[in-house]
Design a protein around this nucleic acid. Sequence first.
DNA 1: TCCTCACTAGAGTGATCGTTCTAGAGCGAC
DNA 2: GTCGCTCTAGAACGATCACTCTAGTGAGGA
Lengths: 192, 192
Amino acid sequence: MSPAGTRERILDATAELLRIRGYPGTGMKQVVAQAGAPLGSVYHFFPGGKEQLAAETLERAGAFYHDLVLAVFDGEDDAVAGTRAIFDGAAEVLRQSGYEDACPIATVALEVASTSEPLRRAADRVFESWLRTLTSRFVDAGMGPAVARSTAIAVVGLLEGAFLLSRSARTTEAVEASGAAAVALVAAALGR
Amino acid sequence: MSPAGTRERILDATAELLRIRGYPGTGMKQVVAQAGAPLGSVYHFFPGGKEQLAAETLERAGAFYHDLVLAVFDGEDDAVAGTRAIFDGAAEVLRQSGYEDACPIATVALEVASTSEPLRRAADRVFESWLRTLTSRFVDAGMGPAVARSTAIAVVGLLEGAFLLSRSARTTEAVEASGAAAVALVAAALGR
DNA sequence: TCCTCACTAGAGTGATCGTTCTAGAGCGAC
DNA sequence: GTCGCTCTAGAACGATCACTCTAGTGAGGA
């Protein structure tokens, strides 16, 4: 009947709410309202309650953005162009969404880092998977492993920091400046 | 009787709670418990309620960190060493506090960017004041105004992104890698 | 002395929180 | 048909939310 299963609709609704309102700011009633699902179903699919729901949402959203960013990166000719494309794409999405649609993990990660070990570890797994993939791409491009890892951390950090500044300022200036910096770092690490 | 006035104790308690638990995650009862103040006093000093209390806390904490970071930066011989000192200091504080004591603004800024205009603008004012000061220091060091501004954005973004990754991973790796990247960016912008 | 007013103090308000519970609908297996 | 099981449906629970209200305390000025 519905285009997607109830479980998926609940996860999608949770992802959107967590991104904008954060973990304590998102209520279960809001989730079921947005998903068009009965409250009972949430606890049927996620017997661990809100914490389990958030953990699975983080993993799912993390994997989705992993694949999305990777596709953008791999669509370019080299690592420098790929890095530039990531930031250009981020700026475009930010602008089009009224500075709402940024990282689905960051807000929750900061909120739960000191208050929920399961969620903190879920966020860490997501970031680590991004870093591993980006590191391997940089190694493929010619960097040594240690430099590739450091550069990957700097690029992801730059992107996350840019999201924070851009969402606060309602401007894409930070994404553009950080994108230029990321491109410069990648080029320098490749000896260009 | 008390070493600091009630109003200041309330602001300090709020700053600590916001940093760790975020805006919707911090309750007024928690604030008064931590501050050792009666609930009535909170609404006496902050008639605008939770939102006004958070806004003033952001401004105050932002100014405090502004001065703190500036003192660390100015304690070094040049802009490159100053940048390095900021990240070294951040890593040390992070480690000593059990990865709790990072940026007092970032969590709230992400939470409220799309849900409270007054708080979003308060966070923006804080970031903008940091950027302006850092930009002027970079200009003093010899950068052109546009390069100085971009570099300042990259450095602040790198620091914020590093806090996010470090708090999630419970490791200072991200602060160290981001610090090295920030140092490289500043050195390159100074033509060194 | 007594008035004023800033501040303390916390019980109480209705609303909303995450969660539990019971009841039943839908459907494939036998 | 009817059993068994997944999933739907939402009322209800105690706790906690931000906030209001009334009462009282205490220091400084007239």
